[in-house]
């Protein structure tokens, strides 16, 4: 019993001695701070040099700094390398978190900026649309002006002198008038929505019924010319007004010449030639 107690005591003392020695040795061996501490400090310093992280992730960076300081303090005050290394690893993770926060915040800021320029682009688009429409209107006006047409309530009227169009008392189109009619046909081809009303007029030479028939025939001849040039017949209405609508005196030859004519009314977009003829 005594012998046994002695042996326990002896062993205990030896053990205690060994542990103390081991502790002392280990303290000597780890006199350098844990490498994790240096790694974390390096990562933190790199992050502080990054203007984006400073701008967008100052709080996570501050948290990383606090963790780093804690790791250093643990090492300095307790020499606990394992705990210090652990906290240093946490600090390094917090630096990585700060980097991600900065990336996300930067992307968000850029997105806001992009969406902010949206209204400017929309305005630009609208302005471009208005400019395009103005251009189209100007172009159409130019085209009509080239036809020497005059504006009226229902559209543009192009008056072709009867002497140019037809030989006296005949309803076949003279070769000299074709260029003008071809321009009308081209205009109609380029504007498929537009329709025309062709109206024939005469002077007062001869009977009213003769002149009525002649005016209808001449209008029809112009209509035929247009359909022959590829214009859908439904877009072309023809009628004769005979001697009923003079624009000048029939007493002089110059006046009679003015009265022998064919009007081509180019209706505004959306107006139907057939309806227009019926309503008059």
């Amino acid at each position: 019993m005594t012998l046994r107690s002695d042996s326990y005591a002896l062993r205990a003392v030896r053990l205690a001695g060994a542990l103390t020695l081991a502790a002392a040795l280990s303290a000597c061996a780890t006199i350098d701070p844990p490498p994790e501490l240096g790694d974390a400090r390096l990562a933190y310093e790199e992050a502080t040099a990054d203007p984006l992280i400073n701008k967008y992730a100052s709080v996570p960076l501050y948290e990383a700094k606090k963790e780093l300081d804690r790791a250093a303090k643990i090492w300095e005050e307790t020499g606990d390398a394992e705990e210090s290394a652990h906290v240093a690893r946490l600090a390094e993770k917090r630096v990585a978190i700060a980097e991600k926060v900065a990336m996300g915040a930067q992307a968000q800021a850029e997105t806001r900026k992009l969406l902010g320029s949206r209204s400017a682009i929309e305005l630009q688009t609208r302005e471009a649309q208005i400019a395009a429409r103005d251009q189209a209107i100007a172009a159409r006006e130019r085209e009509i002006a080239e036809l020497k047409a005059k504006p009226t309530d229902s559209g543009m009227v192009l008056t072709l002198g009867g002497d140019v169009l037809f030989d006296t008392g005949k309803a076949t189109i003279a070769p000299g008038a074709r260029a003008q009619l071809d321009r009308v046909a081209q205009f109609l081809r380029e504007h498929p929505g537009r329709e025309v009303v062709v109206t024939g007029h005469t002077d007062s030479t001869g009977t009213a019924s003769f002149n009525q028939t002649l005016s209808e025939q001449r209008a029809a001849a112009v209509g035929s010319y247009l359909t022959a040039a590829g214009i859908d017949g439904r877009r072309v209405a023809t009628r004769g007004r005979g001697l009923s609508m003079p624009v000048a005196s029939n007493a002089t030859s110059a006046g009679r010449q003015q009265n022998r004519r064919v009007d081509i009314l180019v209706l505004d977009a959306g107006q139907k030639a057939s309806e227009h003829v019926l309503s008059r």
Binding site: K100, V101, M103, G104, A105, A107, Q108, E110, T111, L114
Partner: peptide, 8 residues
Amino acid sequence: AEIADQNR
């Protein structure tokens, strides 16, 4: 960060 980048 990735979601923000996709949105951008």
